[in-house]
Write a protein that binds this DNA or RNA. Structure first.
Lengths: 129, 129
DNA sequence: TAAAATGTTTTACAGATGTAAAAAATTTCT
DNA sequence: AGAAATTTTTTACATCTGTAAAACATTTTA
């Protein structure tokens, strides 16, 4: 039962945590609040829930400037691990497990740049053999 | 606000409805219950909620064998439409909108058959130019 | 040292979701 | 017609989510 479900709102904060690997509540808030308009407390609640879910680790640390005691978070699973788990369940749920239909869909809907198309084809070639 | 959110449990019944295009509650139950172990009432609740969400249409019709009055459901949106909407939000949420990273992920994780790889490359070629 | 600032924890609360039992309505059977 | 069967509708209820206010604890500052 590793990697519990991450909800929509939680993904937002997870991405920020992954980008820093180790980040204080306040710094998460500083990034998330402007782009979501959420209250700082909302972000804190999400961080706490992620800890409860065993997805983040938290410890206390004194701030550098001011010596307030801060909560600092670190991810317990890599972004890739979580993406993987959630991708699989999405594939199953929405496309009934049919990867190639899913891929076709995203290719058509994804206006890729020529670069990206090329890169992807290279990937595909590697799997050919 | 067309196409409200379809939940995990609801997708299961939606797939069945799409496969038939027009199907009675009992027939949905006949398919869904064995593969999920849910109670028939659970399936009915889901059908009702899908109607409330404006995703399914329901009408009454007398059964052929027995003349009980049955609820018969039809989808108001195509499977592709719903997949599309949910794919987009998944892409945004989990991969931060980066289609090519998503694709790379599924290609690696999706053990495609050589056929499927070929087909996909053909798709990509079409988009090249 | 008392007030202000800052950060954390607790509590809240409505709506969504998973899951179904209980009740009601309708049809069939004896 | 009354009982049994079948189907639908209502009600239920715990947990999860989104969203935060309120309360509390700790530092800093006046």
């Amino acid at each position: 039962m590793s990697v519990q479900k991450i909800t929509d709102a939680e993904w937002k904060v997870m991405h920020v945590v992954w980008n820093h690997q180790r980040i204080s509540a306040n710094d998460v808030i500083a990034e998330v609040v402007p782009e979501t308009g959420w209250s700082p407390n909302t972000v804190r609640t999400l961080l706490i829930r992620l800890v409860e879910k065993g997805i983040l680790h938290v410890e206390k640390e004194r701030g550098k400037e001011k010596e307030y005691l801060n909560s600092v978070y670190t991810p317990l699973f890599s972004r890739e691990e979580c993406e993987s788990v959630h991708s699989r369940s999405f594939l199953e749920r929405v496309f009934g497990g049919d990867t190639s239909r899913l891929l076709a869909h995203f290719v058509q809907d994804g206006d890729l740049t020529p670069e990206q198309v090329k890169e992807l084809k290279k990937q595909l070639d590697k799997f050919k053999k």
